[in-house]
Design a protein around this nucleic acid. Structure first.
Lengths: 230, 230
DNA sequence: CGCCCTTCGATTGTCTAACAAGTACACATG
DNA sequence: CATGTGTACTTGTTAGACAATCGAAGGGCG
């Protein structure tokens, strides 16, 4: 099978293109997206452009008030912390339940191998397998709503990352090692320790991202201690 | 402060009305919602009605395919299990973190008192304070994204409940007692036990709801044992 | 008699054109 | 300096229209 072909509507097509342009950084934070601009650049009617914009607003990629032009969301340090804490909540519970069943997702194992493979390459290439590692863990529980919620969070993370030029700070080897340890802890049924390590893992990524965004450490939550479950 | 007044658009107003009609059960599962019907009944133009419908589709209350008329979602037993498991994931992690800080949300305490107050009344009146109890716990962690995700799940739960005529099975006293025990466990810092109790608590509610919907127990997950973290 | 194909009504997707209403900002006025 | 006014830009909503598509009813054929 050559893959399901889908006849997407014009609205969806435009929304998808705008989405990719937002993720690629072509559309920067706070950039205005007027309905007429979108309509003329894609050569469609304004209601069509409007529908596309509102789709992205519903997804959380754009922001808009009544009678105000839509803008690409500007995620500050507080938002980054909010996002990463939400990730931690979802994912640590997933780790516990995976550990209780001692089920190590094959996809996560493969993803971590892929991280090791690109170790010497460009540091941005590690983002994709890293995300794949985490989503594999989430998807392993087989809950459609949890997967959907996590995917929404991942989208916001990607949005943050596209706002950052210097991601050279990430230590690929450390990431890969911690992932490996997480998988081991799952296999050994040690859910609590896996959850704790995940807090550290995500906490570091979070502060690194905040720092790269030019934000300073928040009033609290500077140390990862307040994130550790116990 | 008399509360922020908001000038909602027509689209939002119609969406809100449709939403309440779906929750109240006036619009049953699988009921069709034609764009022209909505437009004529609210005396608005079709694009406006279309936007309202698509808003509810994005919220997950309506279902629709391309070129097919929108219908109220029909949530089967699998969906109920999916929803409740997602609730359990979010909420049990919240309980752990609340317990680690020994923070007992005042709103949850009040909500449980309200449950006790209506103990002798109509069994449906217990649904509102029950939901308030759980959302209070979630909101106590102060994470906007988690709160938003949980609210979406609560919406789906309410949708399920509106599909059920006989909810007389719920044991108000038991619910109230388990809530009380959850709060105590939080206060004592025993997160693991709180999470375990929550699994039992939600597992029972889930199976009760499935039974009331006329569905039989699933192939697995009949016993709550596979939901307990350890 | 049953199955396939065509046709038709109903519904949605999209467009054009237009007007009303709101926001934001500059400008003038007290 | 605060306040009001005005204007340009943008969005909210409407009307009507046409094409594309889906579902079902009906007719032809084996």
């Amino acid at each position: 099978m050559p893959g399901r072909i889908a006849a997407v509507s014009i609205v969806e097509a435009i929304a998808a293109d705008l989405r990719s342009r937002v993720f690629s950084g072509e559309l920067g934070s706070g950039e205005a997206l007027t309905e007429t601009d979108v309509a003329s650049s894609y050569e469609v009617a304004r209601p069509t452009a409007k529908a596309s914009i509102e789709k992205l607003v519903a997804e959380g990629l754009l922001d808009r008030g009544t009678h105000k032009t839509a803008r690409v969301v500007d995620l500050g340090p507080e938002s980054v912390r909010d996002i990463y804490l939400a990730r931690a909540y979802l994912e640590s519970e997933v780790l516990r339940r995976l550990a209780s069943g001692r089920t190590v997702p094959a996809g996560a194992v493969q993803a971590n191998k892929d991280i090791a493979a690109v170790k010497s390459g460009a540091p941005l290439d590690v983002v994709e397998p890293d995300m794949r590692f985490h989503t594999s863990l989430i998807d392993a529980v087989g809950n459609t709503r949890i997967s959907k919620m996590y995917r929404s969070l991942v989208g916001e993370v990607r949005l943050c990352m596209s706002r950052v030029q210097s991601l050279h700070l990430l230590d690929t080897a450390l990431i890969q090692a911690e992932h490996q340890r997480l998988l081991e802890l799952i296999e050994e049924g040690r859910g609590d320790e896996a959850a704790g390590l995940l807090d550290v893992h995500l906490g570091r990524a979070r502060e690194r991202l905040v720092a790269a965004m030019g934000g300073e450490a928040g009033p609290e939550a500077q140390s990862p201690s307040d994130l550790v479950a116990e």
